[in-house]
Design a protein around this nucleic acid. Structure first.
Lengths: 115, 115
DNA sequence: TGCATGCATGCACTAGTATGCAAATGTAAG
DNA sequence: CTTACATTTGCATACTAGTGCATGCATGCA
């Protein structure tokens, strides 16, 4: 079925290892959750106070998140202000969900109700 | 705003590190994509022929995918038949997307159109 | 110009993980 | 019971990634 092959291409397109790897780290997830739940402005040091790790570690985590495009950074004087920018991520998640849904035969991969 | 706090809880609920870690590995992603694009039955050895790694490695990858619930396995004689079961994954992806969307202020985190 | 602040980076260390090979387990067939 | 086949597991190795400390770099201020 060409539909299967079509969805297969979609899957490889949206199943982005780098993004998932970025989200898979507990500290990075905590950073995202904190930024989502608290209004900014967020800086590297302010974020570091909420995590039990060194600021340099937070800096590196933020870099990873920036590289996959989940957060954006802009310099304001000597501090860096960070904010979520999860539009692409949201689109990616939904596209991946759609691709999976059109791939998986419903009898095998039950989307509705608890299987 | 209590809406922000509410979505924050949703985020921590759906931002499951284990699942993302499972999906972040290229070989595991390739396994999922192959299983999605080709009808079964899939066995450990048949899947191993499509990857440049040892069968034992494939076996371990499949174990990880089973542990996060994206594939199911059932023994048929001496072989193990595997199939996708991504209903939970699809729900998780959509819930996470919804949580992110309700978290991110639209002016900061543009969901519609390319920002 | 000198100093303090915020952040990034180099380095060493550690923990976790992927990999391949060989051996063990389980299961069906002779 | 022995053999053959599919899969899993033990073990050793290589590689990747997270961490903390010290240092470097940029910026603002006195």
């Amino acid at each position: 079925m060409s539909n299967r092959k079509e969805c297969c291409r979609s899957l490889s397109q949206w199943l982005a290892p780098d993004t998932f790897k970025a989200l898979a780290e507990p500290s990075r997830a905590a950073l995202l959750i904190h930024m989502a739940g608290n209004d900014g402005p967020h800086t590297v040091s302010s974020l570091a106070t909420h995590l039990p790790v060194d600021m340099s570690v937070v800096s590196r985590h933020l870099r990873v998140l920036r590289e996959v495009g989940v957060i954006k950074a802009e310099k304001h004087g000597k501090e860096v202000r960070l904010h979520l920018d999860c539009g692409d991520l949201i689109r990616m998640l939904r596209n991946l969900a759609d691709a999976l849904e059109s791939c998986c035969p419903p009898d095998v991969c039950s989307v509705k109700e608890t299987s």
